[in-house]
Amino acid sequence: MQYNYRKIALFGCLLAAVVVTLGAYTRLSNSGLGCPDWPGCYGFMSVPTLAEDVLVAQSQFPESEIEHEKAWIEMIHRYFAAILGLLVLFLCVIAIRYKRESPLPTKLVCLLTLLILFQGALGMWTVTMNLQPFIVMGHLLGGFSILSLLSLLYFRVATSLSPLADKVSHRFKMVLFVLGILVIQIALGGWVAANYAAPHCTGLPACNNMELFSINSLFHLPIGQENYEYGVLPFETRLSIHFVHRFWALVTSIAIFVMAIKLYALATSTTFKYAILWVVALLIIQLSVGAAIVYLQFPLLLTLFHNFMAAMLLTSMVRLCFLIKYRCGEAV
């Protein structure tokens, strides 16, 4: 049972990474309202393509123009998200069913199930509230949270919890603190995407129009609109949002590098050393991709890769926390 559960959990991690990437592609390709209803598309469970179905869809949603490419992008994302939800529910049922026979992390998988249900509600509100930025950012964070918890579930069931003696055993709070800094950075990235603020800050390392930056403009919230597609905030607010994301990227990078140097100096096992180097390598790649995105004027595929790398960096930090929390004992 443990072996099969581990394989299903691993598949869940891979599927969650696909769902997060598809969600980012849906957002970046402006396909978030490709289907104006939820969970179907123009009243159908797939994109209407037959002439009679298109006529029915147009009569039911006269204010929406059917763009088949965007609609399919949105529906493919929903299909994969639905499969992921069923998979998590299956993992939860199995964990509860065999609770006495096999020591599976029941509480963790139950938390995952609740998060999946809430994520589905956020997906519905994203459409019904016409891409309200707070909901969009929450939906993005929900996806990253599900990936993180699924990764933690896989680490729990796939890794021997026998003690691994190492001097980093007392550094869990520091790593957890840096993980929190990274989560804030991901949330800021989600806020940039939700407000379509990426192209409003060109130039490196600072924005070309930095004279427009204003702390006060950051409190200009996107509320009270009927539709938030393509953003509703003024230029200076979006520029300020983007610059804060860049500034916090610097804070995050310094925090991770300092953490890595301290941990690597203490680490005695190759397991921890490789885990630390993996985090640093992913961070360097992420910083390089971020700079390339601005230099190349925000190409879609490179921006999509930036989202994917953020998910991988988060997962690597979760693994580092796991190793210290569950594997690390006193150094011998």
Rank of each mutant, 00 (worst) to 15 (best):
F11S: 13
L14Q: 00
L14H: 01
A16C: 11
A17H: 01
V19F: 01
T21W: 00
Y25W: 12
T26H: 02
L33R: 12
G34P: 07
G34I: 08
C35P: 09
P36R: 04
D37N: 15
W38Y: 14
W38D: 06
G40F: 15
G40P: 14
C41P: 02
G43C: 06
F44R: 01
V47L: 11
V47I: 05
V47G: 12
V47D: 05
A51C: 00
E52N: 14
D53K: 12
A57F: 05
Q58I: 00
S59E: 02
S59Y: 11
E63S: 09
I66E: 09
E67A: 13
A71F: 04
I76A: 12
R78Q: 06
R78H: 03
A81R: 03
I83P: 08
I83D: 05
G85K: 11
L86P: 00
L86H: 03
L89G: 03
L89V: 10
L91K: 10
V93I: 15
A95Q: 10
A95I: 11
K99C: 07
P105Q: 06
T106V: 15
C110K: 15
L115C: 13
L117E: 00
G120L: 02
G120W: 08
M124A: 15
M124V: 06
T126M: 04
T126I: 05
M129F: 00
M129R: 06
Q132P: 00
P133N: 05
F134Q: 09
F134A: 13
M137F: 07
G138T: 01
G138Y: 08
L141A: 03
L141I: 11
G143T: 00
L147F: 11
L149Q: 03
L152Q: 06
L153K: 10
Y154R: 09
V157K: 14
S160Y: 06
L176K: 11
V178F: 07
G180S: 12
I181L: 12
A187H: 07
L188T: 04
W191G: 13
W191M: 10
A193Y: 06
A194W: 03
A194C: 05
A198L: 12
H200C: 05
T202R: 05
I215W: 15
I223H: 06
G224W: 10
E226C: 00
N227M: 04
N227Y: 01
G231W: 02
G231Q: 05
L233N: 15
F235M: 10
F235K: 04
R238T: 12
H242A: 08
H242L: 04
F243D: 13
F243Y: 15
H245L: 14
W248D: 07
I254M: 14
A255D: 02
V258L: 10
I261E: 01
K262Q: 09
L263M: 02
L266R: 01
T270W: 01
T270Y: 03
K273V: 04
Y274Q: 08
A275P: 05
A281V: 15
A281L: 14
I285D: 02
Y295M: 06
L296N: 06
L296I: 01
Q297H: 11
A311I: 09
L314Y: 00
M317W: 08
M317Q: 15
V318E: 03
R319Q: 15
R319N: 09
L323Y: 13
I324S: 07
K325I: 08
K325M: 04
R327T: 02
C328L: 14
E330D: 10
